[in-house]
């Protein structure tokens, strides 16, 4: 029984540990400080956005537009800087734009009752189109030298993108675990109707989570831009896949209401290690895609299986109670 509990509680961390051991054995190049910092820096963009996605998915929603928001905010920052706007102001404007895009997602979801999957799918394509339209498909470059510090700089030995990701996770943890709004987010995902009846403003919660996702995508977009030092209309394409996989892998239920942000950290790291390890051990690219797709399916299958098990356990309890009541009467 204990082992079982351990498995269900810490399974994800065991997977993480196993993967580290696994790739360390396969390649000497894996467990070097250089490479470990590479992995952390590489997951920073996806990790930062994954915090926002966690908020959204905890309410039972989904945000497919994340990759495109990352792209558009990057292009926006780039274009503003090229026009001569100081970097700090350009970044602020981009972050506000990120929030606005999130709010727009929530607005359509809330006010027109459209499923989040469809709204954000449409937004994903629309925003990507805007990024191409604005840039004419060409990269935007020529920023002040100092701007590269966000994506390429270090604080001590820690890359700045990693610090930004760390702060995002910390803020996410505090909001979800220590504040009332965190409980409400879990509540909306667990049972939206019950939350509404108990006086939670469900719409407000949704506005909040999608704008958090937008903001964090904005931050991720700026970091990515600084890292590449060149505004790519294609930046962030298909990141939604990596981000959602990481969040689900981290144990956040796709039905909402369950999951811990600490698990998401492990999910993000697993994705990073998987991708890094497969390159270092030279797994062909086509096989890499297969592995990443299967990981997503398996993670969701695991979650759905757990859910249905709990649901049936719930019915069992109710039936037992009913039986007990019958006996009493």
């Amino acid at each position: 029984m204990r082992i079982r509990e351990l498995f269900s509680k810490y399974g994800i961390y065991m997977v993480l540990l196993l993967m580290v051991v696994f790739f360390s054995v396969l390649s000497e190049a894996f467990l070097t400080p250089d490479n470990l910092f590479n992995i952390l820096r590489q997951v920073a963009v996806v990790g930062t956005a994954a915090v926002g996605m966690t908020f959204v998915m905890l309410t039972g929603g989904i945000d497919l537009s994340v990759g495109s928001i990352i792209g558009v905010t990057g292009i926006l920052t780039a274009s503003l800087m090229v026009m001569g706007v100081p970097a700090v102001i350009a970044v602020l404007i981009a972050l506000i734009a990120g929030v606005l895009m999130g709010l727009l997602n929530a607005f359509i979801i809330n006010e027109f009752n459209v499923p989040p999957l469809i709204v954000t799918l449409g937004m994903m394509t629309t925003l990507r189109g805007i990024a191409y339209l604005v840039t004419g498909g060409m990269p935007v470059f020529g920023f002040p030298e100092s701007f590269t510090i966000l994506g390429q700089g270090y604080l001590g030995i820690i890359p700045i993108p990693v610090i930004i990701m760390g702060l995002a996770f910390l803020a996410g943890y505090i909001l979800l675990d220590k504040f009332t709004i965190g409980r409400h987010i879990y509540g909306v995902g667990g049972n939206e109707e019950a939350s509404r009846l108990s006086g939670v403003n469900v719409k407000k919660i949704k506005y909040f989570v999608y704008s958090v996702s937008g903001l964090l995508c904005g931050i991720a977009g700026v970091v990515l831009l600084s890292r590449t030092n060149s505004g790519q209309p294609k930046a962030g394409t298909s990141y939604e896949m990596d981000i959602i996989t990481a969040v689900v892998l981290g144990g956040v239920s796709i039905k909402g209401g369950e999951g811990k942000i600490t698990g998401v950290i492990a999910g993000v790291l697993i994705m990073g290690i998987l991708s890094n390890g497969m390159i270092i051990t030279n797994v062909g690219d086509y096989a890499q895609r297969i592995v990443q797709g299967l990981v997503l399916i398996l993670a969701v299958a695991f979650d759905c299986y757990n859910q249905s098990r709990k649901a049936s356990a719930g019915t069992l309890i109710r039936e037992n109670k009913a039986a007990a009541l019958n006996e009493n009467s």
């Binding site: 079982r4 997977v15 398996l298």
Partner: peptide
């Protein structure tokens, strides 16, 4: 019974990823 299965699934997820990547990389290793 059901709890047993749950562990099976977890182990499945675990080993699947491992086998897949090791299957691809053995030679390279």
């Amino acid at each position: 019974m059901k709890q047993l299965k749950r562990i099976h699934i977890l182990i499945l997820v675990l080993t699947f990823v491992m086998i897949l990547s090791s299957g691809c990389t053995n030679k390279v290793a």
